[in-house]
């Protein structure tokens, strides 16, 4: 596991921003975000975007009230990152695997994966910070330790979710595989962000907004 560094935070986000930009580009160009038949006309995109905004807002508020402003900001930004990146990956992959009307539900559902992957990391960082002085462990060491400490649990969660997704995908035709693709995208994105994005964000927001308890 690579060491967490404040300087490396933007680098981790570059890949995400690149994929998000590519997703937006192919969607606007009409190449990506493909749907089966006329399913695109049945999808209420305005409702999807509102639901995504509500998801990010509730995540931020819950984290800020339950833990701290730093945790709230970290969770909120990770939720925004994961939702946008999942949608972008869906836009790109749908070129080969067209989507169905259920796509918005699956994209919003990916917040479940974000919570399951990032929450234990944030909680572990929060607890380590509370238990150790900055002299004993700085924020970067805490972030690295938290990622390592929760790796087994996060991997087990990925395996269970992957088993359920595969069980669904092998049950039907190619259209069902395409329909379930946003779940697979959400799962991969959430695992990636829990390792490469969440710790960096927490280090940044703890340094900027955190206070020693």
């Amino acid at each position: 596991m690579s060491n967490v560094s404040i300087k490396s935070a933007p680098k981790a986000l570059y890949l995400s921003l690149l994929v998000i930009a590519a997703g937006i580009a192919v969607a606007l160009a009409g190449i990506g975000l493909k749907f089966l038949g006329s399913a695109r006309e049945m999808v209420a995109f305005d409702a999807l975007y509102i639901a995504m905004a509500v998801t990010v807002a509730i995540t931020f508020i819950f984290g800020a009230i339950r833990y701290s402003l730093a945790v709230g900001i970290t969770l909120g930004v990770v939720a925004l990152h994961d939702q946008l990146l999942t949608l972008a990956v869906v836009a790109l992959v749908s070129i080969a695997l067209p989507q169905t009307v259920v796509m918005p539900v699956l994209v919003i559902f990916s917040i479940v994966f974000t919570y399951c992957q990032s929450w234990p990391v944030i909680r572990a960082m929060h607890e380590l910070r509370t238990a150790n002085s900055t002299r004993e462990m700085d924020n970067e060491q805490i972030a690295t330790a938290a990622v390592r400490q929760t790796a087994g649990l996060r991997l087990a969660a990925v395996i269970v979710a992957a088993l359920l997704i595969v069980a669904g995908a092998v049950s039907g035709n190619a259209a069902l595989v395409g329909a379930l693709m946003p779940l697979a995208a959400g799962l991969i994105v959430s695992f990636y962000s829990s390792v490469c994005i969440t710790p960096h964000l927490w280090v940044l927001s703890a340094a900027r907004f955190g206070k020693r308890k």
Partner: peptide, 20 residues
Amino acid sequence: VLAALLLLAVILIIVDHQQI
């Protein structure tokens, strides 16, 4: 995690009257 998801689900039930 469960409480946050329940809260989110309830808010989305109120906000969205369609598929989500």
